[in-house]
């Protein structure tokens, strides 16, 4: 897994590439926790190049969503592959998360 980061209009835009599994999830979680501890509350996750997710990765997403909600922040995901979108549905996540097709759609949500 690779993580890319940039900031735009106060929103943390993070790209997740590759596999978000039990081996790599702690790295993403640590990075997000570091940002959350700095009271960063708005996030866009670019999932276009995320190839795979397991329950460890889903847990990191759910935990991020809960923490941003507590801070009245926003979390938007975009570019989920069809396979990953199906896993979100099975997990019952599609009703918690804001999912967009592309970055423009994700940024619009913050307007």
């Amino acid at each position: 897994m690779e993580i890319t980061e940039r900031k735009q209009n106060g929103i943390n835009i993070m790209g997740i590439q590759g596999r978000l599994d039990t081996s790599s999830a702690p790295e993403l979680e640590a990075r997000l926790n570091a940002l959350l501890d700095l009271h960063e509350k708005d996030y866009i996750l670019d999932c276009r190049e995320m190839e795979y997710i397991s329950s460890s990765g889903l847990r990191v997403f759910l935990s991020l969503l809960k923490r941003t909600a507590q801070m009245n922040g926003k979390l938007v995901l975009f570019g989920l592959s069809q396979s990953i979108a199906e896993i979100f549905t099975i997990a019952g996540f599609e009703k918690y998360f804001i999912l967009k097709d592309d970055e423009a759609g994700a940024l619009d949500y913050f307007q």
Binding site: S55, R59, L62, L65, A69, I87, I90, A91, G92, Y96
Partner: peptide, 24 residues
């Protein structure tokens, strides 16, 4: 099995692995 109908505040972080296995 996790209660996937719960509102976000009450939804547990864990319990997903076996739920996914059963569904797949």
């Amino acid at each position: 099995p996790p209660d996937i109908d719960k509102p976000l505040e009450e939804r547990d972080i864990g319990g997903l692995g076996i739920h996914l296995v059963r569904n797949l």
